[in-house]
């Protein structure tokens, strides 16, 4: 038996909106730790890792570890039917081939349940070791989204370079080239508006903008984004989910042959 009650249901709606374009089908894993997911896109270039910790739910009952295969587009369709202020409860019985999403309006005057069919998914699970990164950039998530969108109108790839000068995002395309430099800026009114760069080694890596633009669908989840880079390693783009966990995106670099 599984029963997870999330008072801030809008978080789950935002999570689905942030990952449904990158991944079609995924197994949601439920354990005493929390509700989690790890899935790669079909070309194995990008990976999403989600964790919603059990403590973040108002009620969390998971009698035994359970993996539920879901089509993320269908799940997103159902969650779109929940109001932004609704409480969402995820329910499943042991051995059942369905999951139920229950939506309660804040005043309890409207209660809906949506039952969705589960699916068997052969998912590959990658072991991602904890790593020390050469450079970690924290910046406003809206700024990162704006940069990825702007650069994708010029080129297909972005070179992200971190030096002591700041973090530079560069692209080239048929019509020309663009460079955007963000300097460390901690003298802002709100901490979330700061750009903070921790650098051990200068880093320069190239990525497909198509994927970074997918990642920025998670912008509504967090006002800041953390980009962790090491030379010759996949980048990690992390959006923290208020006191509950995170959505992390991993993206393999492009390499000059």
């Amino acid at each position: 038996m599984l029963e997870l009650r999330l008072v801030q249901g809008s978080l789950l709606k935002k999570v689905l909106e942030s990952i449904k374009e990158l991944v079609n089908d995924a197994n949601f894993d439920c354990s005493s730790t929390g509700f989690s997911l790890q899935a790669m896109d079909s070309s194995h270039v990008a990976l999403v890792a989600l964790l919603l910790r059990s403590e973040g739910f108002e009620h969390y009952r998971c009698d035994r570890n359970l993996s539920m295969g879901m089509n993320l587009n269908n799940m997103a369709k159902m969650l779109k039917c929940a109001g932004n202020d609704d409480i969402i409860t995820i329910k499943a019985d042991d051995g059942s081939d369905t999951v139920t999403f229950m939506f309660e309006s804040p005043t309890q005057d409207k209660i809906s349940d949506f039952e969705m069919k589960l699916m068997d998914i052969d998912s590959e699970h990658l072991g991602i070791p904890e790593a020390e990164y050469d450079a970690i950039v924290r910046m406003p998530s809206a700024e990162f989204a704006r940069i990825c969108k702007d650069l994708s109108s010029i080129g297909d790839t972005v070179v992200i370079s971190v030096t002591k000068e700041g973090v530079k995002f560069s692209t080239k395309g048929d019509i020309g080239a663009a460079n955007i430099v963000c300097r460390q800026n901690t003298t802002v009114d709100k901490p979330d508006d700061a750009t903070v760069i921790e650098m051990k080694e200068p880093v320069s890596l190239q990525f497909a903008l198509r994927y970074t633009n997918f990642f920025t669908k998670a912008t509504p989840l967090s006002s800041t984004v953390t980009i962790s880079l090491s030379n010759e390693l996949p980048v990690v783009v992390e959006y923290k989910i208020a006191e509950m966990g995170y959505v992390r995106f991993y993206l393999a670099p492009k390499i000059e042959e």
Binding site: L126, G127, P234
Partner: peptide
């Protein structure tokens, strides 16, 4: 020539 790497090059498939 720019090649797109895949994640399985960096991480073990469990």
């Amino acid at each position: 020539n720019v090649e797109q790497n895949v994640l399985t090059l960096y991480y073990d498939n469990l």
